Simulated scan of single mutants.
Amino acid sequence: AEQALTDQSKTGGPRISFACGVWHDRTMPIRPAYRDAAESFKAVARAVNFRQKPEEATEEINAWVSASTDGLIPSILSRGALSDLTDLVLANAIYFKGKWAKPFAGYLTQHDKFHRLDGTAVDAPFMRGLGSHNIACHDGFKVLQLRYEEGHGPLLPQPPALAPTPVPIYSMCVFLPDARRGLWRLTDKIACNPDFLRKHLPRNSVLVGDFRLPKFKVTFGMTMNDVLQEMGVKEAFELGKADLSNMVENGGRRKMALEKVIHMAVIEVNEEGTEAAAATYMTRLGCTPDSRPPAPCVDFVADHPFAFFIVEEVSGAILFAGHVLDPTIK
């Protein structure tokens, strides 16, 4: 996981910015053992003045997130999100941007209709592909796998006695239902089987006929309290029942409760690297005709809601999981 979340941009791979932190009120200092545990998960633990200056604490947390993501995520907490009753805040932010290994040509991008779940349609810019792509056709859905440009070597220190760590390989996997309103049925299948994604990825490339994928940018942020409580993490949020006192020195003056768990993610998909694409396509001209019958083409037209995943293939880590209901909404 550490290798998967390491920025690869200096070696020609994707740009990855990751930030995770734990903030506690300064009247409740965290035990060194917990601080060390947080750092082992690439998180930092810091003390702030929730009691007397919650707004100042908000600005401090936002400034740290902005610095950790090079300004790509300028803030994660809204004004008034914290109060003088806050004991503890967990925050997580991740940004990913990579160049396609096989870029799209910008001059091929055209507006077309994207059909939303409510039956209406919007005009959206669609990238169009030529040649072959990694596509798998299954009963009721198709899967597209788009590789990102790889880095040229490991960024983490390599112990001399061990074999070199494989270079991370990142790809975006698009799960497109055949039916325009089939997204939720497909995502239910994915959620019910932890191996569903891996088992349905493409195994080879196929020639494409009509290939359209909308450009989109997703900025997602939410408080995860309700989600975690639905998963069974309930008492940690309840004053009087929660007991996180083992995190702090001397057990604290009172039982600690978890106030907020906040998550924010940003991802954008476009034709980046289009100049290289034009040169690549030009190399196909002037080939000797093949007397064999042409292989059947596969259409992949993502003109209705679909799910997508950003995956690091070596470790199997999923950096992003989301869906696009309307590519025109940021």
Rank of each mutant, 00 (worst) to 15 (best):
Gly129Lys: 03
Glu150Thr: 10
Arg147Lys: 15
Phe96Gly: 00
Cys137His: 11
Tyr107Asp: 12
Gly106Thr: 15
His133Arg: 09
Asp139Phe: 03
Gly151Trp: 02
Tyr107Glu: 13
Gln110Arg: 15
Leu130Ser: 05
Leu108Gln: 11
Gly140Ser: 10
Gly129Glu: 07
Val143Ile: 08
Pro160Thr: 02
Pro154Ile: 10
Ala136Asp: 04
Trp100Pro: 08
Pro168Ile: 05
His111Glu: 13
Gly151Lys: 07
Ala121Asp: 10
Pro157Val: 01
Ser171Ala: 10
Pro159Lys: 10
Asn134Phe: 09
Arg128Ala: 09
Asp139Arg: 14
Phe104Ala: 02
Gly119Ile: 08
Pro103Lys: 06
Lys99Tyr: 13
Ile169Glu: 11
His115Met: 14
Asp139Glu: 14
Phe104Asn: 06
Ala124Thr: 02
Gly131Ser: 08
Trp100Cys: 02
Thr109Glu: 09
Arg116Ser: 01
Leu156Glu: 01
Leu155Asp: 00
Ile169Gly: 05
Pro157Trp: 13
His111Met: 00
Gln158Asn: 03
Phe104Cys: 02
Phe114Met: 05
Pro160Asn: 02
Gly140Cys: 04
Leu108Arg: 14
Leu146Gly: 08
Leu155Tyr: 02
Asp139Val: 10
Phe104Leu: 04
Gly151Gln: 02
Asp112His: 10
Gly131Met: 03
His152Thr: 15
His138Asp: 00
Lys99Pro: 07
Arg116Gln: 15
Gly131Asn: 05
Gln110Ile: 11
Gln110Val: 13
Pro125Leu: 05
Pro159Ile: 06
Tyr95Cys: 12
Val122Tyr: 08
Asn134Gln: 13
Lys142Asn: 05
Met172Tyr: 08
Lys102His: 11
Ile135Phe: 02
Gly131Cys: 03
Pro166Cys: 06
Gly140Asn: 10
Arg116His: 13
Leu144Trp: 08
His138Val: 00
Tyr170Arg: 03
Phe126Glu: 01
Gly119Leu: 08
Ala124Ile: 01
Pro159Val: 07
Phe104Val: 07
Gly129Phe: 05
Gln110Gly: 01
Gly119His: 10
His115Ala: 06
Met172Gln: 03
Pro159Asn: 01
Asp139Met: 09
Leu117Pro: 09
Phe126Tyr: 11
Tyr170Ile: 05
His133Ser: 07
Arg128Thr: 00
Leu162Cys: 13
Ala101Trp: 04
His111Pro: 03
Pro168Phe: 09
Gly153Ser: 09
Asn134Val: 01
Val122His: 11
Ile135Cys: 02
Arg128Glu: 04
Ala101Phe: 08
Asn134Met: 07
His111Gly: 12
Ala136Glu: 08
Pro103Ile: 03
Ala161Ser: 15
Val122Lys: 00
Glu150Met: 14
Gly151Thr: 00
Ser132Cys: 11
His152Asn: 15
Met127Cys: 04
Thr165Tyr: 14
Asp139Gly: 07
Pro157Ile: 06
Trp100Gln: 06
Ala105Asp: 12
Lys113Asp: 01
Pro159Ala: 09
Pro160Glu: 10
Leu156Asp: 06
Ala121Thr: 11
Trp100Leu: 02
Lys102Ala: 07
